[in-house]
Design a protein around this nucleic acid. Structure first.
Lengths: 210, 210
DNA sequence: TCCTCTATACTGCATCTTGCAGGAAGTATA
DNA sequence: TATACTTCCTGCAAGATGCAGTATAGAGGA
């Protein structure tokens, strides 16, 4: 029985629509570019093209170009059709998993040092992709875009990432300033400051803007 | 054999550390408050407390308060210890899944209308939790915080959310303005504008700030 | 020439996580 | 008394992840 295509299947299918890739290239490419919007494991990325073949959305052939054999995947007409149909479906709601924030929410179980460490880890984990995307843009500038006719899409996409990364980094600094005013992680309760922040937030105003 | 606690186990354990809950309350609470940092399915949230009992991190007893019986879970001393130890471990890197952005990246497979619809869906999906958290803050203001001594934590946590939601909404409006300049979704390629945006991003400057 | 090291190119398996379907016990409505 | 709705879960199939393992190719040194 044919498997059901998931959002990840369509993500890989969309890559195949750009050009044929080997399984290896596909996982690398997906981890370099898709990870900002659709982070998936290497393991899954290797399985998806096989599923696409089973579905008739891709064909595969073995290439023996001097080196060792590699599976090459190519999109089919049926796959192209499935792609445009996917484009018309409802998107899934976004999903943000940030363990460092969970630590903040329950920071009263640990020390101030633990909390600061969680923020440092978040800063590092955000800084890495942040830097990577800045470098990617720089590489477009001097080596050109791999698919020049798609520049407008990747640039608008990158704008989102940069915006997110900068927001998070800005918040981290704000959080540090706040935390530095705390005597400890726990039992601070309702102070002048927490009341002020609650009022701001209840009026949908960000304390970072002031 | 005893199961291994996952980050989700500790998230539930941290809730149990505040007070005892029934399984039902736990899933509801987790979906109302934790979802902003650690979104997990109802199904999982029902399973986690059982795992905690198996691990010795919680005890359970059946309450027959007039109504039907419900399982009540309570943290143990061992559980409290495990919690503080968790606080000292390395956090997992954040993970942002946003299908609407995937649609943007491959928008050349669809029409302008498809792309606009994806942005509207993102706006709605972000607007819902955005409004919910603003209302939560308003409720703290006039009904008080359920755990007053933890106000500083939830307020700083909420600051992050508001900041994120506002950034995303700001980007959506920016994206709409950009897209409105496009003749179609595909083959726009390198224009004056895409070059300008690439240069900004390559210098780590957000086009939204200008 | 042989050896080790790293990069390429995957697969199998145990475990975690999700969605969905169902079910049974109370509670309100007609 | 019938029925419909909400509470309060459980079972199961299928999706996704991490990790260990396999196997070839080329590069650099002894």
């Amino acid at each position: 029985m044919a498997p059901k295509p998931t959002t990840s299947s369509y993500a890989v299918l969309a890559l195949l629509n750009l050009k044929p890739w080997t399984g290896y290239e596909l996982t690398n490419q997906a981890q370099r570019s898709l990870r900002y919007a659709w982070p998936k494991s290497e393991r899954l990325l290797y399985s998806e093209p096989k599923k696409l073949v089973e579905l008739g959305y891709a064909t595969t052939y073995v290439e023996e170009s001097g080196k060792r054999s590699r599976n090459v995947y190519e999109i089919t007409e049926e796959g192209r059709l499935a792609l445009t149909q996917w484009t018309r479906t409802r998107t899934e709601p976004p999903r943000l998993e940030i363990e460092a924030l969970l630590r903040l929410l329950f920071a009263d179980n640990g020390t101030m040092e633990d909390l600061h460490r969680a923020l440092e880890e978040l800063e590092a984990d955000v800084g890495e992709p942040h830097q990577a995307i800045v470098e990617l843009m720089a590489s477009y500038l001097d080596a050109g875009h791999p698919f020049p006719e798609r520049t407008h899409l990747s640039v608008l996409f990158a704008t989102f990432q940069i915006e997110m990364f900068k927001s998070i980094e800005r918040w981290i600094n704000f959080a540090r300033d706040e935390i530095d005013q705390w005597p400890s992680t726990s039992h601070l309760g309702i102070t002048e400051r927490t009341g002020e922040l609650t009022r701001l937030l209840a009026n949908d105003r960000s304390p970072l803007d002031t």
